[in-house]
Design a protein around this nucleic acid. Sequence first.
RNA 1: GCGGAUGUGGCGGAAUCGGUAGACGCCACGGACUUAAAAUCCGUUGGGCUGUAAGGCCCGUGCCGGUUCGAGUCCGGCCAUCCGCACCA
Length: 869
Amino acid sequence: MTDNNKIAENIKYDAIKTEQKQRKIWDDSKLFFTGDIKKDTKKSYVLEMFPYPSGRIHMGHVRNYALGDVIARKNHAQGYQVLHPMGWDAFGLPAENAAMERGEHPGKWTYENINVMKEQLKLLGFSIDWSREFATCDQTYYKHQQRLFIEMFEKGLVYRKMSKVNWDPVENTVLANEQVVDGRGWRSGALVEQRELNQWFFKTTYFADDLIDALEGLNEWPERVISQQFNWIGRSEGLKFKFDLTHKFGDFNGLEVYTTRPDTLFGASFVAIAADHPIAKELAKNNADLEAFINDCKQSAVTAEALDTQEKKGFNTGLKVKHPFDDTWEIDIWVANFVLMEYGTGAIFGCPAHDQRDLDFARKYGLKVTPVILPKDADANTFAVENEAYSGDGSIYNSDFLNGLSIDAGKRAAIDKMVSLGRGEATKVFRLRDWGVSRQRYWGCPIPMVHCDTCGAVPEKIENLPIALPEDVTFDKPGNPLDRHPTFKHTKCPKCGSDARRETDTLDTFVDSSWYWARFCGLNPDAPTDLEGVNHWLPVDHYIGGIEHAVLHLLYARFFARAMKLTGHVNVSEPFKHLFTQGMVTHATFKSEDGKWVNPADVTIDGKNIFETATKKPVIMGAVEKMSKSKKNTIDPEYIVSTYGADVARLFVLSDSPPERDVEWSQAGVEGASRFVNRVYALFAKHALQSKTPVNETPNDADGDALAIIKAAHKAALNVTNAIDRFAFNAAIANMYELLNFLRNFDGKDDVKIINARGFALSVFARLLQPFTPHLAEEVWSLLGNDGFCVKAPWFEADLKYAIDDEVVIPLQINGKKRDELKVPKGSEQDYVLELANSSKAADIYLNGKTIRKVIFVKDRILNIVVSD
RNA sequence: GCGGAUGUGGCGGAAUCGGUAGACGCCACGGACUUAAAAUCCGUUGGGCUGUAAGGCCCGUGCCGGUUCGAGUCCGGCCAUCCGCACCA
């Protein structure tokens, strides 16, 4: 053992101290300050979904921001000008709850949390430009949001109406449709009630067609997000037309219905309306039985499972309509529990033969079932529908002028006829509704509108913005503190100057996060966006966050991009070019025998015995689940950072699983990452004992081991770069482990050429490490004798001359089974390889006495000889 | 019910273009160092059969089938798990 090695044995990497030192240097030199736009430099806008300031950061944040940081840092090294900002999604209910509990102002709680979390994020060494930080509860942010609201109002994208709303009785506020999951509030989990309230709406449906069409262009989005949005917007194309009532009823002489199957009109056997359809309501006034039925419908279940099993029920109103294509044909109108007022026109015609739901209904009430679509190869005289509706392809029959047509042609013909009769028109219907944004809460962006008895709802003047939240509020009573505030409500009409009432509802907090990506492009004090900034930086090149926002946030942000384009604040209609949705951080869960959750850190696993370390009481292992406080299976990132260092925390959350999948937190995995960091440091430190001269370019006089080292470095650079580009960070890290393992074979070797080659390989290695373990990378970068920052050193581009081996081992297959390996110079031709194969051991055994029928040769890949006896 | 994704050793996973399945890590086991342990370092590690040994053979990527000289990868059909939507007319 050389002296150097003896010294090296004692080399210990002090991650905690080194990381503090490095971060201070980065801060002092404003390393990640974006600065003014550099027009002649490639740009990269990397954005992770900004956090809600709940108190402390959790592992999910670490993974989210570590992912983005890899891309941002690699782009830095590649010479891009990078925009990598951070802010706070800071309005919302938890702050009000905290205010109630502590008697503090929600703003105080929020800003305190922001301070704590910002310090925690800084500990992790992310390459964030903190100079662009803002919180959505900053007046300097929501002021502009109020302006956007007013301008959208002026463009007709905002309106107010009385509407049935989803009322969350726990949060005491309204929820958007998207925020109701299985009939429950998405956050509170409370059963949602229906209430009638006057609400502000964003006209998301105005862009419905474009929101769905443009999905096709989002080819860097995950397929499942695209399909979720597609289903959510839910466009259907069909026919809206009017039935005539046989007898006028009150003010009603007709009934409008919507159908996607106008081709089956001659199979109609009933018409059904929703329980809250105006005709049903009117009828119920003089019909107690119907009233009872309607009330019954209203109370029916809201959950998915219940809907599934719920029986179809109807009430025959006694009213009838005439068939639109045959005056003499009369059809009963039923009120049915499965017809929704919110979709289409709230009324349908039922064709039981070709719709399962209609068939169930018809069978229950003994209604006629007339097939009008004849499957190919079926006999018109014998084809019948029993208990399964036929929804497949076929040709139309039993249908007068539609007979013989295909389904598509029949649809067109029926629509054309309906149009020529003046009874209807082709119509698109969307599942997507307009976005109700009024919330009866304090801690949100005030809606900048004024209600005047003469002028109606009038927007506040832009120069009066922000409409600021008053500070002197209390949370001791239920309801909205703004509404009961002594002065906030009282104002003058911006139009006529007379006494008026200020709107006291605030905006849904999803509004706040719908445009922050645009604000980051430049903190213009005078307008929502900086035009030069948005024109340069948008769209976001990489947007990274959780899959739980697949519909809500991402749909709203796409809507806002369109609205802001219309109002002249951005030039894109799609905000995010590449979307990446990362998996969760999970951890084992444990429960004590009395059913209480036990923190995994307090559990000892000794063979089959699992017990609480302190008390020795047995515990039961539960499922691996998303880290959550309630299940006590969280790991505090700050604890990991202070024990193992930020690099280890970052490395682990990226190394164990592909980023789009869940990663399971494990102590052993963390220790593995920590070993890696220490070994890497030791490798560099030992080298530094022998040389302090940086070798940043490929040495050209190497041979033997030195050449092998150089090749390994180039190969690693090629593989790691490719892996990062396809977001396979776990594979990138595996490649770095391989490089480490290889280079360790040459630890301490004192041959000059080896030292030189190793110095070069380490220079490459440091640069590959930089996006993943930046503190370590910068430290070892200077150990190699470099001035300046590793992150500023050019990203190492592999030379294929070195990265690709000049000798390859290819399999020799006989009849498709591998029988031997052949070492051949790269690019060897078939003749040469075949000759080599003939002299191999395998040839003796498998080729002797056989007839060669075919030879398959793929250069540098494989030789396969097909033989027979 | 509809739509989407996934399925590979004891575990997490790799295999980028149809061409050596199991890289890399974890766990486990053996060894070195140590009074001892931890740490560290060096090895072994898909299953089975066979051989004194070097080695050889068979099986193997959820299941069944197909295309191909060759399939984890492509095609058809199942099964399982997860996610989303769901009386949407």
